[in-house]
């Protein structure tokens, strides 16, 4: 059973392979994403994030989920050497960079709690897999061609409960300037995909690694339990030393 809905400004996919999958359980998963969107969207006035940014909620009244996200964001900032920050120059927060992977991972845990073993949950190209696909094989995940949305340039096989996330832009050719430094071109690197122990870990480190540009792949290389595949603007890819274990 597989369903796609458009939530949090992106396509969200839930596929449950187990024979006893029901529409009710699929609905439960999408309801969770709806909840996350309502709570964390910086673009919805009624979200907790907006209320915090507008000074309407005191820190002691933050919800438990909000406190957890802020803690995780702080931890990621430290681990990524400052290349990850949810606070902008005006002191406003936008935790989306941590919320996406966290939400997918939590949704996948929900699927597991309902009692399913073989499934995947995806939001906007970041994926958590569990068990096997409908052919009883490892999940076959394509890495999108950043220069052509309809193509893939690599296939990775995931047979443990793992996550894969990609950070980058498909934009090609033209100049992308760093908004903070208009003379600096941002896109030596156009995409970096990270395989990790779960999609939350993969997503936050993919985001940080992309911000580091060509140093990003070295950052992933140094993390144990993670592999990465980085594509530069000339269509050349660089991979971490054990990445190919996932391509055979």
């Amino acid at each position: 059973m597989k369903e796609t809905r458009f939530l949090m400004g992106m396509p969200v996919v839930v596929e449950i392979v187990d024979a006893n999958a029901t529409q009710e359980s699929i609905n439960k998963i999408f309801d969770y994403f709806k909840y996350v969107d309502e709570k964390f969207s910086p673009f919805k006035e009624t979200s907790e994030v907006s209320k915090i940014n507008n000074g309407l909620i005191k820190e002691k009244d933050y919800s438990q989920d909000m406190q957890e996200i802020l803690k995780l964001a702080k931890q990621t900032k430290e681990e990524a050497g400052g290349y990850f920050d949810i606070t902008d120059n005006n002191g406003k927060i936008n935790p989306s960079g941590i919320v996406k992977g966290w939400a997918i991972f939590n949704a996948s845990k929900l699927v597991q709690e309902i009692g399913f073993k073989n499934y995947y949950v995806e939001a906007g190209g970041d994926i958590q897999v569990s068990g096997k696909n409908s052919n009883g094989e490892p999940w076959k995940i394509g890495i999108k061609n950043p220069f052509n949305n309809s193509e893939i340039v690599k296939i990775v096989l995931l047979d443990k409960n793992q996550g894969i996330a990609t950070s980058g832009t498909y934009v090609r050719g033209q100049h992308i300037y760093n908004p903070k430094n208009r003379t600096e071109e941002m896109t030596q690197i156009v995409s970096i995909s990270v395989i990790g122990p779960n999609v939350y870990e993969a997503d936050r480190f993919a985001t940080a690694a992309f911000a580091m540009q060509k140093e990003g792949i070295n950052f992933i290389e140094k993390l144990s339990g993670f592999e990465g595949y980085m594509i530069n603007k000339n269509g050349m890819a660089t991979m971490t030393s054990n990445f190919e274990a996932y391509t055979k």
Partner: peptide, 26 residues
């Protein structure tokens, strides 16, 4: 680290990992 020129793959996959949200907004 090993490098290679990227090449289009034709096999069927279950899902695709990519940065879709930025390109949609773009």
């Amino acid at each position: 680290l090993k490098s290679e020129a990227i090449q289009t793959q034709s096999a069927n996959v279950n899902a695709v990992s990519g940065a879709t949200e930025t390109s949609r907004a773009f």
